[in-house]
Computed example of a mutant assay.
Amino acid sequence: MNDVHETRAVSQGKATAMLILTTVMWGGSFLFTKIGMREIPPLQFYFFRFALAAFLMGVICIPRLTRLNRDTVRRGALVGLALASANLMFVLGVSGTTISRAGYLNNLFVLFVPLLSFLFWRERLDRITAGGIAVALVGLWFLASGGAEGFNRGDLLSTICAVFIAGQIIAVSRVLRDDDVYLVTFVQFATVALVGALVTMVMPWPPFTMGASGAWSLVYCAIFPTIICFTLQNAFQRYTTPTRAGLIYTLDPIWSMLAGVFILGERLTPQELAGCMLILLAVAGPLALRLYLEQRRRRLYRLDDAGQV
């Protein structure tokens, strides 16, 4: 793997393509988690996924382990606790609702990041984000009023998952420094696996038999949306703007919905579909508007520079 400090330039098109690929793999995690939990209980699936991911990441990091120090372990563990909370809510949420609904609800993290930053650090909450939150609330109301069960327990846990995802993103920006991203990622995965081990020790261990579909689902979730996606995100997101990256990540629930409809046979009522589309609009709309404003400012700066020549 290339070192994270590689300076060779990457084109905008390649960075965009790689980030879109990460959304495809993240979307697939909803499908394979749902399939895997047909054989493996949610808590055990959560533990096995990150135990395998931590083991594989540890193997990858063998040449780097001499650089592992107390500060990296401490910071990685702090971020890992947030990641553990998010993924615990993820498996419990997906186990209780459709992957179509869970994908859109998880994507609310884009709105929760500025909201949590405002609540805890008094960072300014702009009108664009406030408008997105208002549209998202309308979308949640449509989801709650659509479907046989309305806004059920799985939906609630998927929404809480989005809060924890936002917390993990904020933790990364506020806690991590110039650490080796591979070592930090290894510590994060190991922390999540340790939390999973503790949870499964405390909770009753139900009897289950893991077949081929459960095993392959675990392998997919440990490797593709975990190890590979983290690596691609760390390698390519720095070559685009945060706004553009956020807009690309809104594709994630679209892939999960397509997988739910065409592979699992899930069906959304018109109200559910309207709620999902409103949530997508609430998330993607503010990002698209910010991207437009960024590009407009760049054009104005170029015009000003040209006029001064």
Results as ranks from 00 to 15, higher is better:
S117T: 06
S117R: 08
S117C: 13
S117A: 15
F118E: 01
F118N: 02
F118Q: 01
F118C: 11
F118R: 02
F118W: 13
L119V: 09
L119T: 01
L119G: 07
L119R: 00
F120K: 02
F120I: 00
F120D: 07
F120L: 10
F120T: 00
F120G: 07
W121M: 10
W121C: 12
W121N: 10
W121I: 03
W121E: 09
R122D: 11
R122I: 04
R122S: 13
E123I: 03
E123N: 12
R124M: 11
R124G: 14
R124I: 03
R124C: 10
R124E: 13
R124L: 12
L125R: 00
L125M: 09
L125A: 02
D126Y: 05
D126I: 02
D126F: 04
D126K: 02
R127H: 06
R127E: 00
R127I: 00
R127Q: 06
R127V: 05
R127Y: 02
R127A: 13
I128M: 15
I128T: 14
I128A: 15
I128Q: 13
I128C: 11
T129F: 05
T129W: 03
T129V: 15
T129G: 01
A130H: 01
A130W: 01
A130Q: 07
A130N: 05
G131M: 02
G131R: 01
G131T: 05
G131V: 00
G132Q: 06
G132V: 06
G132P: 07
G132E: 04
I133A: 08
I133C: 05
A134W: 10
A134L: 13
A134N: 09
A134R: 04
V135W: 04
A136P: 06
A136E: 00
A136Q: 01
A136M: 03
L137V: 08
L137E: 04
L137D: 04
L137W: 05
V138N: 04
V138T: 13
V138I: 15
V138H: 00
V138Q: 03
V138F: 14
G139D: 05
G139R: 01
G139A: 10
G139Q: 03
G139M: 03
G139N: 06
L140G: 14
L140R: 01
L140F: 14
L140K: 01
L140C: 15
W141K: 11
W141F: 15
W141M: 14
W141R: 12
F142W: 12
F142S: 08
L143S: 11
L143N: 08
L143E: 09
L143Y: 10
L143Q: 09
L143I: 13
A144D: 10
A144G: 15
A144W: 07
S145Y: 11
S145M: 12
G146I: 07
G146V: 09
G146L: 08
G146P: 09
G146A: 12
G146M: 08
